[in-house]
Design a protein around this nucleic acid. Structure first.
Length: 204
DNA sequence: TGTGCATTTCCTGCTT
DNA sequence: TAAGCAGGAAATGCAC
């Protein structure tokens, strides 16, 4: 069993997720492990193999067609007049917003989940990796796979990296993460950095 | 029962 | 021009 943020992921009951032969989890792109992939290569551009782990039902839904609910200018036609049908489309989809029933918010926080993944050699550097451990800069290697694990922990099978990254940005504004130094040393994409409120990552 | 926190979801606008 | 990133707004579950 592997403990991530206090939650035990059972290798035996989930062999596809955690192979028993100490090999890499099946979601990990074999090309990355074999050395065919490096940061900046095609494999590094968010290429995923999560379909090997998550069934069709478990896979996140594709991004829904965007409903424009706030900006009236974007639903008006060329003449700037909002048609009645377009007006109807502006009704907020309140029922689809926010957390769903059964999605627990208790337990560990997102930054702790990320920290624990970095702590575990089963996930570091296959799912995410240190860019600069001294300054707390890390980078998502398999961003969608990490998002799926986070969603799994929160009973939310529709979790995506887009949503996870939004939560990461909220945590950044709260001080758990910080801005990545813009000195050209780190790639801007998929890079985050632990903030002042985060602790326990230095002694990993 | 009300409030605050920590997200989650949807969206627009900006940047790469 | 498309994809990714940033952030606003509204909603939720939970703890207190």
């Amino acid at each position: 069993k592997v403990n991530i943020c206090g939650e035990w992921y059972d290798i035996d009951s989930d062999p596809a997720l955690f192979p028993t032969d100490n090999s890499c989890p099946t979601w990990v792109d074999p090309g990355y492990i074999s050395g065919d992939s490096e940061i900046g290569s095609e494999h590094d551009k968010n290429e995923l193999s999560v379909s090997a782990v998550f069934s069709d039902e478990e896979m996140p839904e594709p991004k829904k067609a965007k409903n424009r609910t706030r900006n009236s200018s974007s639903v008006s036609n060329d003449s700037g007049i909002v048609e009645p049908e377009q007006e109807a489309e502006r009704v907020p989809k309140k029922c689809n917003r926010g957390r769903k029933v059964g999605q627990s918010s208790k337990g560990n926080h997102l930054w702790e989940f990320i920290r624990d993944l970095l702590k575990d050699s089963a996930f570091n550097p296959t799912l995410l990796r240190w860019e600069d451990k001294e300054t707390g800069v890390f980078r998502f290697v398999q961003s969608e796979a990490v998002a799926q694990m986070w969603g799994r922990k929160k009973n939310n099978t529709s979790m995506t990296y887009e949503k996870l990254s939004r939560a990461m940005r909220f945590c950044r504004s709260a001080g758990y993460f910080a801005d990545v130094p813009k000195n050209g040393k780190f790639p801007k994409k998929l890079c985050f950095r632990f903030g002042q409120k985060a602790h326990g990552w230095k002694d990993l």
